[in-house]
Write a protein that binds this DNA or RNA. Structure first.
Length: 112
DNA sequence: CTAATGACGACAC
DNA sequence: CGTGTCGCCATTA
């Protein structure tokens, strides 16, 4: 099933994101092949919050292109921000990651 | 099948 | 430079 394959790829990529780094929806979607599937990436990660698989997926390392923790609401409180800080990620704003220092581009690290 | 929604992104004003 | 609008595509009603 292609749509399920899309999800699997999203998880696979997100799992590759190293600590102290973050990536964005558009890059993940583009790397997978669905250039305009940024929303689908967010949706895929959203599913993680509803299944045990999420335990193994660092979804908190995925933010929007601006570095904003748009999905923090799904982590309960500031869990998303706190986890990133624990990994060494710095913030430009209360909920905006410093993408200039912590941006991680899948196409630059994953040989797909 | 149609309409509405969303952890997004790019463009127009 | 901030706000508004459209496009994108899977999911849900």
């Amino acid at each position: 099933m292609s749509k399920n394959d899309f999800y699997q790829k999203v998880y696979k990529v997100v799992e590759q994101v190293p600590e102290g780094y973050v990536t964005n929806y558009g890059s993940v979607a583009g790397f997978i092949g669905v250039k305009s599937g940024a929303r689908m990436v967010g949706y895929a990660l959203n599913q993680l919050a509803d299944q045990p698989l999420g335990e193994s997926i660092p979804a908190h390392r995925v933010v929007n292109r601006l570095g904003q923790l748009t999905g923090r609401a799904y982590f309960g409180g500031d869990a998303m921000k706190e986890r990133l800080e624990q990994e060494g990620v710095t913030f430009k704003e209360e909920y905006t990651v410093d993408m200039d220092k912590h941006f991680w581009d899948p196409s630059e690290h994953i040989d797909g």
